[in-house]
Simulated scan of single mutants.
Amino acid sequence: MTRSNKVLIIGASRGLGMALAQEWLSRGWEVVATVRSANTPLHRLEQVFGNRLCIEQMDVAEPYDTDSLARRLAHHDFDVLYVNAGIALGSADRADEVSTEDFTRLMVTNALSPIRIVERLREKVKEQGTIAIMSSSLGSVALNESGGWEVYRASKAALNMLMRSFAARHASASWGLALIDPGWVRTEMGGANATLSVEESIPGIVNQIAASSGRPGLRYYNYRGETLPW
C-alpha cells in the first residue's frame, strides 16, 4: 500500500488555513489541521474527505496546547508542517496609537508563537520535509516605502528574523524552510478590496512548496515563487 503524503497545518479553521487544507486534500494528501473551537468551517470538510482529514483543537498562543498536540501526534510524521496562525489589528495599527496589550497580543500571536510551535514540532517533520510559516511581503523592511500596517509589519518582520535565527540554529538540518507571502487575498482578514482570490493564491503556495521539496535552507518568497528582499 502506497503511503500518502501528510501535512500538519496550524491554524486552519477558516480563510487561508482552511483553503490550504482543502487544496492538499484535493491532491490526495492526508491532513492534520488545528482549530481553536469545536465548530468551524473546516469541520464541514470532514463530510467530504472523511478520515483523510484529522482536526485537532489548540490555541497557538498557549505553549501547553502545543505540547499536548505533540504528545497526541507522537506516532505521526509529516512531509510538511505549515504554521498559518496570525491576526491583524485593522485600523488601530499605528505604533504611537496601539495599546500595549494589543501590541503584545499581535507580537505573541504572529511572531513568538509560530517559532515556539516550529521548535516544538520540528521533530515531527521527516528528513527532506518542509517547515513553512505564513509570512507577508509587509514583513520586508526593504519593501516598506509606503508605511501603514505598522504594528502588523513589525510582527511579520520579527517573525522573519526569528525564523532566520531558527535556521541558523539548525543549519545542518535537511528540512526546507520557507517564509511565504500569500499576497493580498480576499478573506475576512484581507478584506473585500484585496487583489487576489483564494483560488489564485493557495494553489500557488502548495505548488511552490512541492517545487522546493528536498531543498534545504531558508527561503522568503511569495505564492508565485518570487524571492522577496528581507
Rank of each mutant, 00 (worst) to 15 (best):
M1G: 13
N5E: 15
V7G: 13
L8T: 04
I9S: 15
I10K: 13
G15A: 06
M18I: 05
A19E: 11
L20M: 12
L20W: 00
Q22E: 14
E23W: 01
E23A: 11
W24P: 01
R27D: 07
G28F: 04
G28P: 07
G28N: 08
W29H: 12
A33Y: 03
T34Q: 03
V35C: 06
V35Q: 03
R36G: 09
A38W: 01
N39K: 13
T40L: 03
P41W: 00
P41Y: 00
R44W: 00
Q47M: 03
V48T: 14
F49V: 07
G50Q: 03
N51S: 15
C54R: 12
E56F: 00
E56H: 01
D59H: 15
A61T: 12
A61N: 14
E62T: 11
P63L: 12
D67N: 15
S68D: 11
A70K: 14
A74L: 05
H75E: 06
D77R: 14
F78Y: 04
L81M: 10
L81Y: 09
V83F: 02
N84K: 12
A85F: 02
G86I: 14
A88Q: 13
D96E: 10
D96L: 12
D96R: 13
E97I: 12
V98F: 14
S99R: 09
E101K: 07
L106H: 05
M107G: 01
T109S: 14
T109D: 08
L112D: 03
I115V: 15
I115D: 07
E119K: 15
E119C: 12
E123G: 15
K124S: 09
K126F: 00
G129A: 14
T130Y: 05
I133R: 04
I133K: 06
S135Q: 13
S135I: 13
S136C: 10
L138Y: 03
G139N: 10
V141N: 09
A142Y: 00
A142D: 07
L143V: 11
E145D: 13
S146E: 02
S146Q: 09
G147S: 07
G147A: 08
G147M: 05
W149C: 06
E150S: 11
V151E: 08
V151A: 15
K156I: 02
K156P: 02
A158M: 03
A158I: 02
L159N: 08
M161N: 07
L162R: 10
F166E: 02
A167Y: 02
A171Y: 07
S172H: 12
S172Y: 02
S172I: 02
A173C: 04
W175E: 02
G176H: 05
G176W: 00
A178V: 05
L179S: 08
I180F: 02
I180R: 09
D181P: 06
P182H: 01
G183L: 01
W184D: 04
W184H: 12
V185H: 04
G190M: 05
A194T: 08
L196Q: 08
S197W: 00
V198H: 03
E199D: 11
E199M: 01
E200D: 13
S201A: 03
I202V: 10
I205R: 11
I205V: 10
N207M: 09
Q208P: 11
I209T: 06
I209E: 08
A210V: 09
A211L: 14
S212G: 11
S213I: 03
R215Y: 02
R215M: 11
P216L: 13
G217Q: 09
L218Q: 13
Y221M: 02
R224Q: 11
T227K: 15
T227Q: 10
P229N: 12
W230K: 12
W230V: 10
